[in-house]
Amino acid sequence: MDIEEMKKRFDALNTSLESLDDDNIRLIRQVEEGKIKSAQTKLCGKYRIFVIIGLTMSIVMPVFYRHIFPLAQCIGFSIFFLIAAMMDLYLLCGVRKINYTTMGVETVARKALFYRKRHHLFMAILIALCIPLLGSLYWVFRDDTELI
């Protein structure tokens, strides 16, 4: 298929997709009534919640769980939650800045992929940090069969 043939087929696509506009009205109404949020808004909302949870837990752990867990583990978990909160804050700030109406397509594509990769990288780091923390907790309470 050469490029000119592709252009003709692309023009034919218009005719094939015309009928899809007939059921638009419900979707348009839902958008106007604010019933649908964009993926960017939902993602930022999730990151915001996890920032709050992370910061809260980093304070709660050494303050309220000091009598249950040893000090070293409490501090360890506090730092863990603080790191998680900072990571989520970084992702929140980055994703929020992506502007679909003013940025070029290449910029948006690059930023979207960048933050997606960062998200997966941060998850891997947090899992890697969590394993020795849970392991140390198990080591401390290894003789307490009831708790285990």
Partner: peptide
């Protein structure tokens, strides 16, 4: 994707 486009157009209309 179509839903996403509609929402982003709606959000951006005021800034056009």
């Amino acid at each position: 994707m179509r839903q996403e486009v509609y929402v982003n157009l709606w959000r951006g209309m005021g800034s056009f």
